[in-house]
């Protein structure tokens, strides 16, 4: 349940708006990166290496967030990094939601042994040390965009399955569903017309939180060296690269982490707000 909302009487939607604003801001940055980034994020300039952010001594307006060990502009790298991090988050949400919702609908609608199996699997999954399994799979079969997305979806589908299952179970007892069954509406059509629309709002709520979780998890995986590597690194990869220079250039680690924190905060605020609006009882 939302805790923050009550803090500002009469402006209950303010924090949700802030959250949505943050996400929109990051998304715009990702889309418009080539236009707004002051430099090419991969352009090496050894003469400018390790410059601190502009508010510190030795920093300059030319590189507002400083430069890294190869003289690449941190601001440009953070802006471009949003592309990978957001893409991973969005893709993981779509794949996870598709798998989880389907399983949740089937288990919730048909009940019986299908449902029992689901609850056992959910229990097993929760007791799995997810991050360990993830680095195990990725370090064995190799990282990259889609492997990371699939592993994150593997960790997230349970959340959708649980919520959707609960919703479907309550929808199924409604009179209009009974009525539809009794006049012989085919099961698939029934699922599509009455059950699916009801599951949409809980799915959106879970998606909002799990997008935030996916961005955090991607960062953790990249940090452990099994994430999405490439010319334009994700925030997690930047964090990992920066770690070696923690003693001399802390901003290499601080900036991408800050970017992650802000984006995740946006997702969490949105999730809180949507949860409040749609259904105060799902979630915790």
């Amino acid at each position: 349940m939302s805790v923050l909302r009550r803090l500002i009487p009469g402006k209950r939607d303010m924090l949700g708006t802030i959250g949505a604003g943050i996400l929109l801001f990051v998304a715009l940055g990702a889309v418009l990166a080539p236009m707004i980034a002051p430099y090419d994020p991969t352009a090496i300039s050894l003469l400018d290496r390790m410059q601190p952010p502009m508010w510190l001594e030795g920093g300059s307006l030319a590189h507002p967030l400083g430069t890294d060990n190869l003289g690449r502009d941190m601001l440009s790298r953070v802006i471009y990094g949003s592309r990978i991090s957001l893409a991973v988050g969005v893709a993981a949400v779509i794949v996870g939601a598709a798998i989880g919702s389907t399983i949740g609908i089937v288990a919730g609608y048909f009940g019986g042994w299908v449902d029992s199996i689901l609850s056992v699997v959910i229990n097993a999954q929760l007791s799995f040390p997810f991050i360990l399994l993830a680095i195990f799979i990725l370090s064995t079969f190799g990282g990259g965009f889609w492997p990371v997305v699939l592993v994150l979806a593997l960790g997230a589908w349970v959340n959708y399955a649980r919520v959707v299952r609960g919703t479907v179970m309550s929808v199924r007892t409604q009179d209009y569903v009974h009525a539809a069954i009794s006049v012989g509406v085919p099961t698939l059509r029934l699922l599509r017309t009455t059950v699916l629309p009801n599951t949409l709002s809980p799915i959106i709520v879970v998606a909002s939180f799990s997008m935030a979780q996916a961005i955090l998890a991607e960062a953790a995986l990249s940090f452990l060296g099994v994430g999405v590597d490439g010319a334009n690194p994700s925030w997690g990869v930047m964090l990992n690269d920066g770690r070696a220079y923690l003693q001399t250039a802390w901003w290499l680690t601080a900036m991408p982490g800050l970017a992650i924190a802000i984006t995740v905060l946006g997702g969490n605020l949105c999730g809180d707000w949507l949860q409040d609006r749609f259904n105060p009882r799902i979630g915790n």
Binding site: V3, L4, L7, A212, L216, A219, A220, F223, L239, R243, L246, Q247, W250, T253, A254, G257, I260, A261, I262, V264, L265, G267, N268, L269
Partner: peptide
């Protein structure tokens, strides 16, 4: 307001990053 905001931000920041920042500040 302060405590809930800090908690919300604490939940959003990557934990290992907080660890690194603690190292950068207190140790380095």
């Amino acid at each position: 307001f302060l405590a809930t905001s800090v908690a919300m931000i604490g939940q959003s920041a990557p934990n290992f990053w907080i660890g690194l920042m603690l190292i950068a500040f207190f140790a380095v």
